[in-house]
Simulated assay, not measured.
Amino acid sequence: MAHATPPVFLVADIGGTNTRVALSDGENVLSGTIRRYRNAEHPGLEVVLKQYLAAEGDIVPRAACIAVAGPVRDGKGHLTNLDWDMDEAGLAKSIGAGHVAMLNDLQAQGYALDHVSDADMMLVRQGSDGPDGAPRLVVNLGTGFNASPVFVAPSGPFVATSESGHATMPVRTEQDMRLCGFVARQHGFAAIDDILSGRGLAHIYAFLSHEAGKNDTLTSAAIMEGCASRADPLAVETVAYFTRLTAMVMGNLALVQLPFGGIYMVGGLSSAIAPYMAEFGFDTAFRDKGRFADFMDDFSIYVLQDDYAALKGTAAYLHGLVAQQEQA
C-alpha cells in the first residue's frame, strides 16, 4: 500500500500478546494504517516494524514512538511477558527514523486522554468537577496492575512513570490479611499486581475456594463468565471481592495523587468489572477512608473504552516532542 504523501510518524503499542502499529499525520493516527501482529510469531520488535513499513510501501518515518508493556528507562525497554529488549537508538537505526521515543504503555494511555472522544469515556462514578488542568490518574486493570498520574505543565501534559502494581497489597480486614497470606505462600510476595489483575482474579477465586474447604480453580475469563451467568456463586463472590479491593486501592491512590481532574480506568478488567461496580459496593469501599470519606466525593471515575488509545497517546506525545525540538 503506497502513500502519495507519506505520513511522517510511526507509532506502535506493544502489549503482552500483540503489537499494534500505525502511521500518524502529526498527532492524528491514520486508522486505515493500523495493523496487528502476534508477538509470539516474531523474534523481536525490529522485525515487526520492518515488516510493517514494507507493507506500507517501504516508508521511512521521520520519527517514531513506541509504547511498551513493561518498564522503560534511559531509552531502553523490556517487555514484561516476553523476552523482547528494545532501545531507542537501535530502533532508529533499524527503521531509518531520525528519532525514536519510547514510553511505558500506561504513559501512552495518559497522553491519550485529551485525544479520546467523550463517547469512549464511560462515567462510572460522578465526582466534583475539577478545574481545567487539574491532575488526573490513569489506572490499568488487565494482565497486570499499574497507575500513573497525569499532570499539565506549561509545555503540555506530563505523564509520570510508575510501578504501582509491585507495591505491597494493602489490607483492610482480616479476610484481606488471609488473602495476602495465601498469595504469599503460593508466590512469595503479595503485591497489588498479584491480586488486582487477570491472574489475581484467579488467585482470589482459589483463595475463596480454599476458605470453603475446597481446591477449585478457574481462569479469569471463566470467572467472569460464571459471574455474568450467576451459574457459579463462588465466581460472583470473587468478582465482588475483586471489585471492593480495587476500590480500596484506587481510593488510596486518589489520596496520594489528588486527581481532581478524574481517574481513568483502562485495561480489559476495567471494562469487565464496570457493570458490577454499583452492585458490589465499589463506591462504599472507595469512600471507606474514615473522616476523609466525604473528601472522596471529589473524584470522578471513568472507564476508557478506546482500543486505540495507546496509539493516539504515542502520536500526541511524539507530535509534541518533535515540535519542542524544532523550537529549540
Rank of each mutant, 00 (worst) to 15 (best):
A240Y: 01
V266P: 02
Q257R: 09
N252P: 04
L255H: 10
M250R: 05
L258I: 01
L255W: 08
I263H: 13
Y264C: 03
A235N: 03
A235R: 01
L245V: 05
R230H: 04
D232Y: 02
A231P: 04
L234Q: 11
L269R: 08
S270L: 12
M265R: 07
L269V: 15
V236P: 13
N252G: 12
N252S: 15
P233Q: 08
Y241G: 01
M248G: 03
G261L: 08
L234N: 12
T246K: 03
L255R: 12
N252L: 11
T243F: 00
F242T: 04
P259F: 11
M250Q: 10
Y241C: 07
S271V: 14
P233A: 15
F242E: 01
M250E: 12
V249E: 08
L253D: 03
M248R: 14
A231V: 08
G251F: 11
A254D: 06
L269M: 11
G261T: 02
P233G: 07
F242P: 06
A247V: 10
I263S: 11
T246M: 09
L253C: 04
E237P: 00
A231T: 13
G261P: 01
G251M: 06
N252I: 08
I263Y: 10
M248L: 07
A254E: 06
L269N: 09
A254W: 04
A235P: 00
S270V: 13
A235Y: 01
Q257E: 15
Y264Q: 02
V239A: 01
V239S: 05
A247W: 03
G262R: 00
S271C: 14
S271A: 15
V256T: 13
L245W: 02
G261W: 06
G268R: 09
P259E: 09
Q257Y: 15
Q257L: 14
G268P: 04
V236H: 09
A254Y: 12
S270W: 12
A247Y: 02
G251W: 06
A235H: 00
F260H: 13
